[in-house]
Amino acid sequence: MTTTEQHIDQILMPILEQVSDPEIPVLSIMDMGVVRSAIIENGIVKVEITPTYSGCPAMDVIGDDIKKALQDAGYKSEIDLILHPAWTTDWITPRGRQALEDYGIAAPLNAEADKEVLLNGKRIVKCTNCGSKNTRLVSQFGSTACKAQFQCADCQEPFDYFKCLK
């Protein structure tokens, strides 16, 4: 029951990969790991998505965007929001992590390192601008609940860090 596997019909993959996170447009929802299953049943595509954060306002938009993308490809669809198993930042793909970094958002560290950074002020988050690890936590909450705010002490660039959620 607590499966962390994804069930995605490969025919649907190219369509779903075109749908991006409305708040981080460089990131496909597939690389974000929010689509847990997408199967075709009696001519209808059934998609299960899971929210990153409970209050994430992007979820309703993502649901609509998926519906529209599938419709453009000639499919009728039903979107279900599931809570279990809960989303974790571990589900962001390597390509997704790279997209985040390129966009100026530091990708999540592992849970241990994340704690060190957010609680003990350890300087290990890499600046997305210059690559320096001489960075400091400005606020545990950034532009959205899923991010924390950092500043680079070398190049002075402020940037977001995607917090580890596990």
């Binding site: 954060y53 209050g55 909450f141 950034g142 609940a145």
Partner: peptide, 10 residues
């Protein structure tokens, strides 16, 4: 921003 993000989570 932190307080309103907490609000949003809730």
């Amino acid at each position: 921003i932190a307080c309103t993000n907490i609000s949003l989570d809730l």
